[in-house]
Write a protein that binds this DNA or RNA. Structure first.
Lengths: 193, 193
DNA sequence: ACCTGAACACCGTTCAAGT
DNA sequence: ACCTGAACACCGTTCAAGT
């Protein structure tokens, strides 16, 4: 007689995401996840093949959320591609502050976890679209990569506390947004105060 | 009667760096390091207080190397701050290709390892100097952060295989270098072909 | 003074036995 | 068909005992 399911893959992944933010990647153990979903560790292997696979699922879910946040930001930003890029940068930063550990895992995976190509594409479509509108068809992809690289790099460094030389980090972020928007548009940045 | 030392801190850190690149962070185990320096794992605790401390030393050494590579690149680049920034970007990328795992650990530390402030400052002085020459005293720090964030972000994404949408990655890198140099200089990028 | 074997706690994973 | 306890291999770390 089959026993009723006592948990589910979705519940396991959610527990993994919570633990990741609460206790770091080292704290995301099979035993901790199992306890959190009310089951013993060996039972997890009915739904995920091993810990690395679970981590990959956690990262995929995080990436998907990020793509959703990007879509929302763009929808709110209006039609000007400059405004869409600004909104995307701020959305990325807000997301990183909200899920710092997951964010780091998405952009600097420690081992070679194969991100879901669909989620990857979905998360980048908003930037590519805005960058193409701004830089033109021929340079759209290069421009999107330049912008994304800067935003990701800035936030990564902020999260790891690399900005220790003083100065206002918020101001540095705004400076960067405007510099990148201008660079992608192929014009000089607006005059600075 | 004191026994002669059978290893040293420097040897242990070197073994850690080798293992890091060879087998990843997970492969950097106390037992593997011990075997590599010809000693048993417990003996390592005479020189490092625990594994995290060893990882921190490995990261510090990597950061110091990166600072050295930056100094060399700048010395070879001549006096034009644009050329110095270009050289720094290429040096960073070359370093990352040479030590991918260590590089990731420096710029996206998984746990909260406290990088040596001296090494951090030394590694950034070359960028800050070039950026200040180019952007002016008032915006030098912001400009340096913008440039570093982009370079770090680009290389991180390249290492983690995020550039899967096709296109030439080398070309995207050059596009980015010129866009950032122009943005930092506060002028429009040179016309693109 | 450094090195070692033995030991402990903890984790990932497998598997036979339960229901 | 899912869940569990028991077991195994492996890792970080401590410590008493060797030299």
């Amino acid at each position: 007689m089959p026993t009723p399911d006592r948990t589910s893959l979705a519940e396991i992944v959610d527990a993994g995401r919570d633990l990741l933010e609460l206790a770091g990647l080292d704290g995301l153990t099979m035993q901790a996840v199992a306890t959190r979903v009310g089951v013993r560790a060996p039972s997890l292997y009915k739904r995920v093949s091993n810990r690395d696979a679970l981590v990959a699922l956690v990262v995929d879910a995080t990436l998907r959320d990020l793509g959703g946040a990007a879509d929302v930001a763009v929808a709110d930003a209006g039609g000007d591609p400059r405004d869409r890029l600004r909104a995307l940068a701020h959305a990325l930063r807000a997301f990183a502050h909200h899920r710092p550990v997951g964010f780091r895992l998405v952009f600097a995976p420690t081992s070679d976890l194969h991100l879901d190509p669909d989620a990857l594409r979905a998360s980048s479509v908003a930037v590519v679209s805005a960058a193409t509108d701004l830089a033109g068809e021929e340079h759209g992809l290069d421009a999107a990569r330049t912008f994304t690289a800067w935003a990701n790099g800035f936030v990564s460094m902020e999260l790891s506390g690399a900005f220790r030389l003083g100065g206002d980090v918020d101001r540095a972020f705004d400076f960067g947004v405007e510099a990148l928007v201008a660079a992608v548009a192929g014009v000089a940045p607006a005059p600075r105060t």
